[in-house]
């Protein structure tokens, strides 16, 4: 999976983890935008088109699923990231790959690969 030149939305409410993710992905040559809430993510979608998204499942005690629905609608390839073990997603996201924290670049690339193949 080549990320160079792709627009990638990163959704992560824990700033320090978000920075690490942002650094990781942008070093691959991708254009990244980091947001920390569903609201910020929706604002970002208003102004930009994204090829891919790495989305934290739990955002400040809520779920990110409404944002993911919008992303999928816009034709974006999505993977989930979560700090909780054994997360069960709603049925419509049953096929969406999930990486668990702490993750590294390799596991994110592999998950994005699987997501783009099943899409």
């Amino acid at each position: 999976m080549k990320l160079a030149g792709k627009n990638i939305l990163l959704v992560e409410d824990e700033a320090i983890i978000g920075f690490a993710l942002e650094d990781m992905i942008s070093e691959e040559g991708a254009n990244t935008q980091l947001v920390g809430s569903v609201k910020e993510g929706e604002d970002a979608l208003e102004n930009n088109a994204f090829d891919m998204a790495v989305v934290d499942v739990n955002l400040n005690g809520g779920y990110s699923y409404p944002l993911v629905d919008r992303l999928v609608e816009a034709g974006c390839t999505v993977i989930f990231a979560t700090g909780y073990g054994g997360t069960t997603h709603p049925e419509r996201f049953a096929m969406t790959p999930t990486v668990s924290k702490p993750y590294d670049l390799a596991s994110i690339l592999a998950a994005l690969d699987r997501a783009s193949q099943s899409a």
Binding site: D13, A15, F19, G36, S37, K39, G62
Partner: peptide
């Protein structure tokens, strides 16, 4: 730097 990045990010809450 990291410090400024962290400071300017603020406490990202549900509403930003």
């Amino acid at each position: 730097g990291f410090g400024t990045r962290l400071i300017t990010r603020g406490l990202s809450d549900r509403y930003g």
